[in-house]
Amino acid sequence: MNVPLLDLKAQYQTIREEIRKVVDEICDSQYFILGPHVEAMEAKIAAYCQTPHAVGVSSGSDALIIALMAAGIGAGDAVITTPYTFFATAGAVARVGARPLFVDIDPVSYNLDPGALENTVAAMDNGTRAAVKAILPVHLYGQCADMDPILDMARRHNWVVIEDAAQAIGAEYKGRRAGSMGDFGCFSFFPSKNLGAFGDGGVVTTTSAEMDQRLRMLRMHGMEPKYYHRMIGGNFRLDALQAAVVALKLDYLDGWTSGRQANAAAYRRLFQEAGLVQQVQLPVEVQNRHIYNQFVIRVTHDRDALRAWLGEQGIGTEVYYPVPLHQQECFNYLGHGDGDFPLSEQAATQSLALPIYPELSEAQLAAVVERIGAFYKA
């Protein structure tokens, strides 16, 4: 039995007629960029994320960049973040001219470790500590980072807090939604996300009316009013089509999330029944609402061999992420070496994402576990 890592066609079939109707509406209107569909989507996302404001932008990567710009982060500044994440997190910091400062992860949640953060800041010299202007925690795989100690540290040092919630819309930390706890929340609507558009798209949430206005100016080249530029921004505008798709899908998101959570529970039962919990470490729900953008197991031995075997058996998997950011060639100038962030490096060699999308059948889930069991028996 073939089990793809993701099957967006199955999702599309359930909403096909609604999607085609809104696409026709946009085509008939010929209003393709920003406009009423973007405004409607922003209002729905703000309400869903429990924030006063949401600003639609061109991608999740651009959401990070424009949030940093709005916060005034630039050359000479430093931003603390994790080395175990998608490239855009630290790439955005470098793009605005700031320097990424990495803190290792908690090995259970894969998110930035508050204890390591305390130790890192304590070890900084005065110049480095003064250069830090922001912290950028990531809610990886659909589970929020441990935000209370991070927020406390940010308050003590007067840092801006930018949540990278690209994989975590709807995730919660002690009853608070991802994107509502910091100064900014950055989301991606890349098609493979649990809330995906039909192309690139993103949104920035904020609690500040001032930052909301600043973000809206920055996404239009710093323009307000038309052809008058108060600041240098960029073209971070969101297409109406992507906004309309996201707004429509948002009505289904909680149901899809429940499906992902049910599949995660089924995996736990199946791995337990198969006697594989010693060979495979299952994800731990540290926070109270994990939305399972990915279901990531940890394999302490032969991860790559297992992945190759599953591929031969028609089981889709992925490694998120095989090379921590401090080991990426483009960040050589930061001066890090192997072993600097050992928990991130270990996760990069051991983690493996399995199919988790809500349309999976019980038979498909069982096939994944059965094939993993066959690998270890062999």
Rank of each mutant, 00 (worst) to 15 (best):
I162L: 05
N194T: 14
A145Y: 08
V79T: 02
A353G: 08
M211W: 07
E18Q: 15
A122M: 12
R177H: 15
P342M: 06
T14M: 09
A240I: 02
Q328W: 01
F187R: 01
E224V: 10
Y267M: 08
D251E: 11
L117E: 05
A265V: 08
T120K: 12
A134S: 06
D24N: 10
V161C: 06
G255S: 10
A40D: 08
G199V: 07
V103E: 00
A240T: 10
I105F: 05
P324E: 08
T85R: 03
Q364F: 07
R269F: 02
L151S: 11
R269M: 06
Q328G: 02
A247N: 08
Y321T: 12
T14W: 04
V286T: 15
F375A: 02
A71T: 03
T300F: 12
R298N: 09
K133R: 15
K9C: 08
P191W: 09
P283C: 06
A54L: 08
R289F: 04
G74Q: 05
A71G: 15
Q213V: 05
T300Y: 12
H37V: 00
R260T: 06
G234D: 14
A134P: 01
L151C: 15
E172V: 12
L140M: 13
V22K: 07
T207D: 12
Q242N: 12
R219L: 09
P114D: 13
V132S: 06
L5G: 07
P358T: 04
Y110C: 14
A243Q: 00
R298G: 01
K249L: 06
I356P: 06
A367Y: 15
D212R: 03
A145V: 07
Q294T: 14
V299H: 01
I356W: 08
I232V: 09
D212C: 10
L310M: 10
R99V: 11
N332V: 06
L310R: 00
D152M: 13
P107Y: 07
Q167P: 00
L334V: 05
Y227H: 13
T51R: 11
A265Y: 08
G196H: 07
M124G: 03
A130S: 14
M231N: 06
N235K: 09
F295L: 03
F187W: 05
T300M: 10
L325K: 07
Q294I: 01
G97K: 07
I162T: 03
A90V: 07
A75M: 08
V103I: 04
W256C: 03
P342S: 05
A63P: 00
I291L: 14
N194Q: 14
A247R: 00
T207G: 15
A131W: 04
D251N: 10
G60N: 01
D7S: 05
N293A: 11
D164R: 01
H290K: 05
L253F: 09
A63W: 00
E25W: 00
A71W: 01
A168F: 03
L248A: 03
Y173D: 03
A78S: 14
A123R: 15
K133E: 04
A178Q: 11
G179P: 07
A367L: 11
P191D: 10
A378R: 13
E362M: 13
F331V: 00
A145D: 05
V57R: 00
Q167R: 04
A10L: 11
V93R: 01
Q11T: 06
A134I: 04
V203D: 02
G234E: 08
D164S: 03
P100W: 02
T120N: 02
G311D: 13
I315Y: 00
I150G: 02
D152I: 07
